[in-house]
Design a protein around this nucleic acid. Structure first.
Lengths: 95, 95
DNA sequence: TTGTCATATAAATTATAATTTATATAAACT
DNA sequence: AGTTTATATAAATTATAATTTATATGACAA
Protein backbone atom coordinates (compact mmCIF):
# COMPACT_ATOMS: atom_id res chain seq x y z
CA UNK A 1 0.00 0.00 0.00
CA UNK A 2 1.11 3.61 -0.35
CA UNK A 3 0.84 6.54 2.02
CA UNK A 4 -2.17 8.05 0.35
CA UNK A 5 -4.05 4.75 0.37
CA UNK A 6 -3.49 4.36 4.07
CA UNK A 7 -4.58 7.93 4.76
CA UNK A 8 -7.69 7.62 2.65
CA UNK A 9 -8.70 4.60 4.63
CA UNK A 10 -8.35 6.13 8.08
CA UNK A 11 -9.37 9.76 7.47
CA UNK A 12 -13.09 9.23 7.85
CA UNK A 13 -14.74 10.29 11.12
CA UNK A 14 -16.43 6.96 11.79
CA UNK A 15 -13.38 4.90 10.82
CA UNK A 16 -10.99 7.02 12.85
CA UNK A 17 -13.35 6.76 15.81
CA UNK A 18 -13.36 2.98 15.47
CA UNK A 19 -9.57 2.91 15.36
CA UNK A 20 -9.26 5.09 18.43
CA UNK A 21 -11.52 2.64 20.27
CA UNK A 22 -9.56 -0.35 19.06
CA UNK A 23 -6.40 1.35 20.28
CA UNK A 24 -7.56 0.27 23.75
CA UNK A 25 -7.68 -3.39 22.74
CA UNK A 26 -9.98 -5.69 20.79
CA UNK A 27 -13.71 -5.08 20.92
CA UNK A 28 -16.94 -6.51 19.57
CA UNK A 29 -19.03 -4.67 16.99
CA UNK A 30 -21.64 -4.00 19.66
CA UNK A 31 -19.10 -2.45 22.02
CA UNK A 32 -17.87 -0.14 19.28
CA UNK A 33 -21.43 0.84 18.38
CA UNK A 34 -22.10 1.81 21.99
CA UNK A 35 -18.87 3.75 22.36
CA UNK A 36 -18.96 5.82 19.21
CA UNK A 37 -22.78 6.09 19.13
CA UNK A 38 -23.35 5.24 15.52
CA UNK A 39 -25.73 2.81 13.84
CA UNK A 40 -24.68 -0.80 13.76
CA UNK A 41 -24.89 -1.22 9.97
CA UNK A 42 -22.71 1.85 9.58
CA UNK A 43 -20.07 0.48 11.93
CA UNK A 44 -20.14 -2.92 10.24
CA UNK A 45 -19.75 -1.27 6.88
CA UNK A 46 -16.69 0.67 7.95
CA UNK A 47 -15.18 -2.31 9.76
CA UNK A 48 -15.40 -4.18 6.50
CA UNK A 49 -13.56 -1.41 4.69
CA UNK A 50 -10.86 -1.32 7.36
CA UNK A 51 -10.50 -5.07 7.17
CA UNK A 52 -10.29 -5.17 3.38
CA UNK A 53 -7.46 -2.67 3.59
CA UNK A 54 -5.66 -4.82 6.17
CA UNK A 55 -5.94 -2.25 8.94
CA UNK A 56 -8.02 -4.35 11.30
CA UNK A 57 -8.37 -8.10 11.85
CA UNK A 58 -11.29 -10.06 13.22
CA UNK A 59 -11.92 -13.34 14.97
CA UNK A 60 -15.15 -15.07 15.86
CA UNK A 61 -16.09 -15.66 19.46
CA UNK A 62 -19.45 -17.34 19.85
CA UNK A 63 -22.00 -15.09 18.29
CA UNK A 64 -19.72 -12.12 18.59
CA UNK A 65 -16.98 -10.93 16.28
CA UNK A 66 -13.95 -9.35 17.90
CA UNK A 67 -12.05 -6.72 15.98
CA UNK A 68 -8.55 -5.38 16.61
CA UNK A 69 -5.89 -3.26 14.94
CA UNK A 70 -3.80 -5.60 12.85
CA UNK A 71 -0.31 -4.34 13.63
CA UNK A 72 1.70 -2.52 16.22
CA UNK A 73 3.04 -0.14 13.58
CA UNK A 74 -0.50 0.94 12.81
CA UNK A 75 -1.55 1.59 16.39
CA UNK A 76 1.68 3.52 16.93
CA UNK A 77 0.86 5.61 13.88
CA UNK A 78 -2.63 6.41 15.13
CA UNK A 79 -1.03 7.55 18.37
CA UNK A 80 1.50 9.72 16.57
CA UNK A 81 -1.24 11.35 14.53
CA UNK A 82 -3.05 12.17 17.76
CA UNK A 83 0.09 13.62 19.34
CA UNK A 84 1.16 15.66 16.34
CA UNK A 85 -2.29 17.15 15.89
CA UNK A 86 -2.47 18.20 19.52
CA UNK A 87 0.79 20.12 19.17
CA UNK A 88 -0.86 22.30 16.52
CA UNK A 89 -2.85 25.34 17.63
CA UNK A 90 -4.75 25.70 14.38
CA UNK A 91 -8.24 24.48 13.75
CA UNK A 92 -8.47 22.51 10.56
CA UNK A 93 -10.52 24.19 7.87
CA UNK A 94 -11.41 20.95 6.14
CA UNK A 95 -14.71 19.31 6.94
CA UNK B 1 -6.34 20.49 16.31
CA UNK B 2 -7.38 16.87 16.69
CA UNK B 3 -6.24 13.73 14.90
CA UNK B 4 -9.17 13.57 12.55
CA UNK B 5 -8.78 17.23 11.55
CA UNK B 6 -5.15 16.67 10.68
CA UNK B 7 -5.95 13.53 8.69
CA UNK B 8 -8.77 15.18 6.80
CA UNK B 9 -6.41 17.90 5.73
CA UNK B 10 -3.66 15.65 4.37
CA UNK B 11 -5.64 12.72 2.96
CA UNK B 12 -6.36 14.25 -0.42
CA UNK B 13 -4.29 13.10 -3.39
CA UNK B 14 -3.23 16.56 -4.48
CA UNK B 15 -2.49 17.77 -0.97
CA UNK B 16 -0.53 14.65 -0.06
CA UNK B 17 1.43 15.02 -3.28
CA UNK B 18 2.27 18.60 -2.38
CA UNK B 19 3.43 17.54 1.09
CA UNK B 20 5.61 14.79 -0.31
CA UNK B 21 7.28 17.37 -2.55
CA UNK B 22 7.73 19.81 0.31
CA UNK B 23 9.36 17.03 2.31
CA UNK B 24 12.40 17.68 0.12
CA UNK B 25 12.54 21.35 1.19
CA UNK B 26 10.75 24.58 0.35
CA UNK B 27 9.47 25.10 -3.18
CA UNK B 28 7.62 27.67 -5.26
CA UNK B 29 4.10 27.09 -6.50
CA UNK B 30 5.44 26.74 -10.03
CA UNK B 31 7.91 24.04 -8.99
CA UNK B 32 5.16 22.07 -7.29
CA UNK B 33 2.89 22.42 -10.31
CA UNK B 34 5.62 20.98 -12.54
CA UNK B 35 6.42 18.13 -10.18
CA UNK B 36 2.93 16.88 -9.45
CA UNK B 37 1.54 17.77 -12.88
CA UNK B 38 -1.63 19.49 -11.82
CA UNK B 39 -3.15 22.81 -12.78
CA UNK B 40 -1.80 25.88 -11.07
CA UNK B 41 -5.14 27.10 -9.68
CA UNK B 42 -5.70 23.68 -8.20
CA UNK B 43 -2.33 23.67 -6.49
CA UNK B 44 -2.85 27.21 -5.18
CA UNK B 45 -6.24 26.24 -3.86
CA UNK B 46 -4.85 23.28 -1.92
CA UNK B 47 -1.85 25.23 -0.66
CA UNK B 48 -4.28 27.71 0.79
CA UNK B 49 -6.13 24.94 2.59
CA UNK B 50 -2.89 23.50 3.96
CA UNK B 51 -1.81 26.93 5.11
CA UNK B 52 -5.11 27.73 6.79
CA UNK B 53 -4.76 24.50 8.75
CA UNK B 54 -1.22 25.43 9.78
CA UNK B 55 0.40 22.57 7.94
CA UNK B 56 2.49 24.67 5.55
CA UNK B 57 3.99 28.15 5.79
CA UNK B 58 4.86 30.57 3.03
CA UNK B 59 7.18 33.49 2.45
CA UNK B 60 7.42 35.87 -0.47
CA UNK B 61 10.52 36.00 -2.61
CA UNK B 62 10.24 38.50 -5.44
CA UNK B 63 7.32 37.47 -7.54
CA UNK B 64 7.48 33.94 -6.24
CA UNK B 65 5.98 32.48 -3.10
CA UNK B 66 7.96 29.76 -1.34
CA UNK B 67 6.05 27.12 0.59
CA UNK B 68 7.37 24.70 3.20
CA UNK B 69 6.11 22.26 5.81
CA UNK B 70 5.60 24.23 8.98
CA UNK B 71 7.06 21.85 11.55
CA UNK B 72 9.47 19.02 11.97
CA UNK B 73 6.82 16.91 13.71
CA UNK B 74 4.67 17.14 10.62
CA UNK B 75 7.35 16.12 8.15
CA UNK B 76 8.29 13.24 10.44
CA UNK B 77 4.65 12.18 10.46
CA UNK B 78 4.41 12.23 6.66
CA UNK B 79 7.49 10.03 6.59
CA UNK B 80 6.08 7.57 9.10
CA UNK B 81 2.84 7.31 7.14
CA UNK B 82 4.88 6.43 4.08
CA UNK B 83 6.89 3.81 5.98
CA UNK B 84 3.92 2.21 7.71
CA UNK B 85 1.96 1.96 4.48
CA UNK B 86 4.84 0.28 2.69
CA UNK B 87 5.00 -2.40 5.35
CA UNK B 88 1.43 -3.39 4.48
CA UNK B 89 0.83 -5.86 1.65
CA UNK B 90 -2.80 -4.95 1.14
CA UNK B 91 -4.11 -2.64 -1.51
CA UNK B 92 -6.44 -0.07 -0.05
CA UNK B 93 -10.03 -0.48 -1.17
CA UNK B 94 -10.89 3.17 -0.63
CA UNK B 95 -10.76 5.47 -3.59
C1' DT C 1 2.80 52.79 -17.82
C1' DT C 2 2.43 48.86 -20.30
C1' DG C 3 3.31 44.08 -20.75
C1' DT C 4 4.49 39.77 -18.70
C1' DC C 5 5.09 36.32 -15.28
C1' DA C 6 3.71 34.08 -10.92
C1' DT C 7 0.17 33.31 -7.95
C1' DA C 8 -4.56 33.73 -6.12
C1' DT C 9 -9.63 33.66 -6.05
C1' DA C 10 -14.46 32.55 -7.08
C1' DA C 11 -18.19 30.24 -9.35
C1' DA C 12 -19.72 26.31 -11.66
C1' DT C 13 -19.31 21.66 -12.40
C1' DT C 14 -18.30 17.04 -11.58
C1' DA C 15 -16.82 13.24 -8.82
C1' DT C 16 -16.84 10.61 -4.64
C1' DA C 17 -18.03 8.96 -0.29
C1' DA C 18 -20.99 8.57 4.02
C1' DT C 19 -25.24 7.45 5.90
C1' DT C 20 -29.84 5.54 6.17
C1' DT C 21 -33.23 2.10 5.52
C1' DA C 22 -34.54 -2.37 4.83
C1' DT C 23 -33.40 -6.97 4.97
C1' DA C 24 -30.41 -11.13 5.33
C1' DT C 25 -27.47 -14.48 7.73
C1' DA C 26 -25.73 -17.17 11.35
C1' DA C 27 -25.08 -18.77 16.00
C1' DA C 28 -26.97 -19.95 20.49
C1' DC C 29 -30.62 -20.72 23.63
C1' DT C 30 -35.61 -22.46 24.57
C1' DA D 1 -37.78 -26.24 15.16
C1' DG D 2 -38.60 -21.49 16.57
C1' DT D 3 -36.94 -17.29 18.73
C1' DT D 4 -33.59 -14.06 20.03
C1' DT D 5 -29.21 -11.78 19.62
C1' DA D 6 -25.19 -10.19 16.98
C1' DT D 7 -23.46 -8.98 12.79
C1' DA D 8 -23.47 -8.29 7.71
C1' DT D 9 -25.04 -6.72 3.15
C1' DA D 10 -27.17 -4.02 -0.55
C1' DA D 11 -29.74 -0.29 -2.55
C1' DA D 12 -31.12 4.31 -2.19
C1' DT D 13 -30.26 8.67 -0.58
C1' DT D 14 -27.80 12.50 0.93
C1' DA D 15 -23.70 15.04 1.96
C1' DT D 16 -19.19 16.62 0.82
C1' DA D 17 -15.16 17.64 -1.62
C1' DA D 18 -12.15 17.99 -5.89
C1' DT D 19 -11.50 19.96 -10.21
C1' DT D 20 -12.17 23.07 -14.04
C1' DT D 21 -12.79 27.42 -16.13
C1' DA D 22 -12.49 32.13 -16.12
C1' DT D 23 -10.65 36.05 -14.20
C1' DA D 24 -8.14 38.99 -10.83
C1' DT D 25 -4.04 40.70 -8.34
C1' DG D 26 0.53 42.05 -7.63
C1' DA D 27 5.50 42.35 -8.61
C1' DC D 28 8.96 43.25 -11.82
C1' DA D 29 11.05 44.62 -16.28
C1' DA D 30 11.09 47.05 -20.64
Amino acid sequence: MDGLGLLRCICDETRFGILEELGGGEKTVGQIVQKIKRDQPLVSHHLRTLKECGIVSSRNSGRNVMYSISSRHLSDLIEQIRKTSHEMNDVCCVR
